[in-house]
Design a protein around this nucleic acid. Structure first.
Lengths: 143, 143
DNA sequence: TCATATAGTTGTATCATACAACTATTGTAA
DNA sequence: TTACAATAGTTGTATGATACAACTATATGA
């Protein structure tokens, strides 16, 4: 068994996460959870709380609260579903879309600064491996 | 500017982190923060709260509380510093070391399962890039 | 010696999260 | 058709990680 590389990954991942989560705190207008929810709505279009919770692997109540915050900030709108009056769709507003873009840029800039000395190949590989990891987890998770 | 790879990384990183943090919750006897603190003590030897907080980029109060939890569980011991009676060193106990090992193995196994289909080269590269990322952040951060 | 700096703890607050209890609505089966 | 079960979402309550600020005890330097 190739224990060594796993060992390195395990060790580096814990650090990696703490670094990023801590760095993010300073100076983002949207917090991590709001960002992810907004990004989800922006990417996949309007959805209800239940569906979002499933997609994001979060509890419904968690998403409900996060959504409430975004609604309050006018970043998303609650569209009632005429066919099922219990449900409604959350839809990103223009303000929310703008906020998302700004936030994305902030994160992007920060990342660019960190990776400024990396070669293009390294960056590509890194992105691809992260993607592969996520896909793998998804596959095993949703089974 | 090579926006594309950055874009991919940015997107994948947010997912990556949520996946890992969420996966960890289920079934670890040590929580993330305790694990990291214990690992730090195990790797670099006894240290005081202040030094640990600096190394881990956390607030002193945060480390103080985390340490208290570990002390209470008998995973670390508080060794008074005879030269400065305000201070004391935190030292991992045999129980703590054992707990850390078990936890490490759990994390390791989980990771091994996720990465079971990766080639050795991919794993190596992934570990190296994560390491490189962390080093870069450290350099820029502690400047 | 007295003022200031330092190590650590504790009070208080926030945020992300989960589980459980609840409301309002829909669907179903007798 | 009505009564009961399932479902979408909200809200109460709890926990864990974190930070900042106030505090205690000790050390240091002028």
């Amino acid at each position: 068994m190739s224990e060594q590389s796993l060992d390195l990954i395990e060790e580096q991942v814990t650090d990696f996460i703490r670094r990023i989560v801590l760095t993010e705190k300073k100076g983002d207008s949207l917090d991590r959870s709001g960002y992810i929810l907004l990004r989800q709505l922006s990417t996949y279009g309007p959805a209800g709380v239940k569906a979002l919770a499933e997609d994001l692997h979060l509890d419904i109540s968690t998403v409900s609260r996060q959504a409430a915050v975004l609604v309050h900030k006018n970043y998303v709108e609650k569209i009632p579903n005429p066919e099922d009056r219990r449900a409604h769709n959350l839809q990103i507003t223009p303000t929310g879309a703008q906020e998302l873009e700004e936030n994305k840029r902030q994160r992007f800039d920060r990342l660019a600064q960190i990776l400024e000395d990396w070669t293009e190949e390294e960056k590509q590989t890194f992105g691809q491996l992260l993607e592969k990891y996520n896909e793998t987890v998804n596959k095993k998770w949703n089974r």
